[in-house]
């Protein structure tokens, strides 16, 4: 496979973009519609529900999780900035922190879920818990996907830095855009499910 796809790393003059950047934004656009449909379902179910008892959720835990996820977003962008400054060591540090934060997020979520199950709260209990588990579950799958991608870029994929530093930096930017989107979804999920 020696053919070269144009504008894989360099910018196309008239659009000012490289391919993957447009690609990831289109992917995120479709994700917006995916979560949009779920939020739409959320609004409808909520308006219709006779009781909407979100007091059973653990707000302190979710607040910590919000902070954890925001922090991971910042470390993610710092890892990209480090590459821009040609500092691979710092990149590895920040990327490691990002992965650490996302794992912490999942652990906290695990405790939240298991305490719900212990008290006999299941998705089938009522529509509030149904939408709660579905939305946070889907979000968790996104976090998990992000961890896989970031881990690849942290250890096995990092050798690309030696050969194609430009392209590797682009990859981090792309992974970052995805990760910030995951953060963004949580920023809306948190008040919608826990606080309001």
């Amino acid at each position: 496979m020696d053919i070269k796809i144009p504008f894989n790393e360099e910018l196309r003059p008239d659009t000012g973009l490289y391919n993957a950047k447009l690609g990831v934004w289109l992917f995120l656009a479709s994700e917006v519609m995916l979560f949009g449909a779920l939020f739409s379902a959320y609004v409808l179910l909520r308006v219709a529900a006779p009781i909407w008892d979100n007091s059973i959720l653990n707000i302190p835990m979710a607040t910590i999780n919000t902070v954890v996820l925001i922090t991971s977003s910042v470390t993610m962008i710092m890892s990209w900035v480090s590459l821009k400054m040609k500092n691979l060591e710092k990149y590895k540090l920040y990327m490691g922190l990002t992965i650490l934060c996302s794992v912490v997020f999942l652990i906290i979520k695990y405790f939240e879920y298991s305490s719900k199950f212990e008290h006999g709260y299941y998705p089938s209990t009522n529509t509030f818990l149904a939408i709660y588990f579905t939305m946070t579950g889907l979000h968790m799958l996104h976090v998990l996907g992000g961890i896989v991608v970031n881990f690849y870029l942290w250890i096995p994929g990092v050798k690309m830095w030696e050969t194609e530093p430009e392209r590797f930096t682009n990859r981090i930017e792309i992974a970052g855009l995805y990760w910030h989107f995951v953060d963004l979804v949580w920023i809306f999920l948190f008040p919608a499910l826990y606080l309001l």
């Binding site: 289109l26 656009a29 479709s30 519609m33 449909a37």
Partner: peptide, 16 residues
Amino acid sequence: VLAFPPLEAAGILQLM
């Protein structure tokens, strides 16, 4: 890209 995701969401809900 923009119309299929809502069906995916609906599919997930029906699967649930």
